[in-house]
């Protein structure tokens, strides 16, 4: 239940942002991470960005996740 996923901020408007990976897009609140900018990576939990990530770290986590998913399928 405490799962959070790294996603990239595509557009920011006020305290909402469009985040997504590849074709998938999602609206989340950035009210808990007001410092995020377009292009940043964030950890998303329950419709909120709860942490801004350093891009390389997020990418690394992501590619690992993808590898694991592939291995699991």
């Amino acid at each position: 239940m405490c799962l959070a996923v790294p996603l990239k901020v595509r557009k920011k408007e006020g305290d909402m942002a469009e985040v997504g990976l590849k074709g998938l897009r999602q609206q989340v609140s950035v009210a808990l991470t007001p410092e995020v900018k377009e292009g940043d990576w964030v950890l998303v939990h329950a419709g909120f960005a709860i942490q801004r990530l350093e891009e390389n770290d997020a990418l690394e986590t992501l590619s690992l996740l993808e590898e694991l998913n592939e291995a699991g399928n």
Partner: peptide, 17 residues
Amino acid sequence: AVGFETTAPTVGMTVKK
């Protein structure tokens, strides 16, 4: 509202809204 410290701030923010 269930959840630990990860979730409580998201609920707190929602209540404020």
